Amino acid sequence: MKFLMVSSYLPSVLNFRGKLLEAIHQQGYEIHIIAPDLSSFSDEYQKLRSLGYQVYSVPMQRTGTNPVTDLSTVFALYKLIHKIKPDCVLCYTIKPVIYGTLAAWLAKVPKRFALITGLGYAFQNVDQDSTRSIFQKLVHGLYRQALSHCSKTFFQNPDDLALFRALKLLQSNIPAVVVNGSGVNVSDFDVMPLPLNSQNQVAISFLLIARLLGDKGVREYAEAAAIIKKNHPDIQFNLVGWIDDNPTAITQLELDAWVNAGTLKYWGKLSDVRPAIAASSVYVLPSYREGTPRTVLEAMAMGRAVITTDAPGCRETVVDGDNGFLVEVKSIADLVEAMQKFIEQPELAIQMGKRSREIALNKYDVHQVNKHMMTEMGLL
């Protein structure tokens, strides 16, 4: 039996789907992986190969909608999938979901699954009644075609599923399942003590880990930090991430200005985010929309309180007033108010951090999430 995964970014196969592939492999399946740019990720490629997985390269641009290039991607995917002859395929992120699913259908793969991990730029400011751009209509039409050939579609929050149904991107006859994100391997993210000040009390500091995009709320985080620092100059605001090739990306000039002004401490892009989480007492993600944010789950597993938005994907991770606070999307005032609560009552970071760990264990453990997915795919 052969299981195929199609991805647009090889490192995410290990980081986000590694435990799922391991569990499927243990069920006796050969594991096959298709992704672009293998030469750029030799360490990940070698790691996957060392696990006994077959890894194939395919031309695929993560961004852009050049029809000639995308058509060549579909053809290359079809040729590879026809050669591999998998019993089951799982595609995730936009281009693999669209082109991988269509190619798998053309290659007559018996079981075809899509995982919607987040909606991204093609769904920005989109709801059932809103006007959509030509680009958005194109992408949504492609989604509709691809998902019509799925055996089942997985979503990481109920809001995304509801939107796909409302926009008629997912036909009523296609089964859909909501899973608790990608899960987190809680054994890899141990609870770490909160940082202390010179009086041996909890030192409140904040952290955001994200691709440096506008719709991750990076600008709101920086503006809130600047406001807080006027009255509390010693409070540290940490930022981990990188500038991405995306229409909403933060510019290098903006980042440099925040760092040079002392507003943010920039850690760069980290392959291991645990040191940054350990150095911070409260995790902040002011994102406009997510699938289920993995960084929040990792911070929760390490016993950190969370401030995030009352937005799809984000709101599922926080019970307001229990393991953190929910704030309105794009509201700098709300963000400042929530941060101020931790500064005035540092003990909240301890209490809410404990609850975050409990929620991570009970709801987001990666083994539970993977078991749910595998059951729904008929692999158990």
Rank of each mutant, 00 (worst) to 15 (best):
H140A: 00
M1H: 01
F75Q: 15
W258V: 08
A305K: 02
L169N: 03
P59R: 11
A76K: 11
A279L: 14
A261I: 05
L90K: 08
V186F: 05
W267H: 15
L163T: 07
Q171C: 04
P86C: 10
N238G: 06
E347N: 13
T263E: 08
V259Q: 15
Y56S: 01
E337V: 10
V296T: 12
M1C: 01
G52S: 06
A166R: 11
K152M: 13
L119D: 00
M339G: 13
Q27L: 14
P11R: 12
L361W: 06
I33Y: 13
G217R: 04
L194Y: 11
E298T: 08
E337L: 12
E337Q: 14
A278T: 05
M1L: 05
N323E: 08
A122K: 04
E328S: 12
Q61H: 07
T317L: 02
E298F: 12
Q145E: 05
N66H: 00
D37L: 13
T69I: 10
R289P: 06
S50G: 01
M60L: 15
A226P: 00
G291L: 15
T63L: 01
M352V: 09
R219A: 13
A360L: 14
E254H: 05
N200Q: 15
N157V: 02
A360R: 09
L167H: 02
F113A: 01
Y99D: 01
Y221N: 13
T117N: 10
D272M: 06
L14V: 14
G141F: 00
D159W: 05
M192D: 12
H32Q: 13
I227Y: 03
G214L: 11
P195W: 05
E290P: 06
V109M: 03
S182G: 12
D215F: 09
V329M: 05
S281H: 07
D160G: 02
S12M: 11
M300C: 02
L380P: 02
V366W: 01
V329I: 15
T309I: 14
L208F: 01
D234L: 12
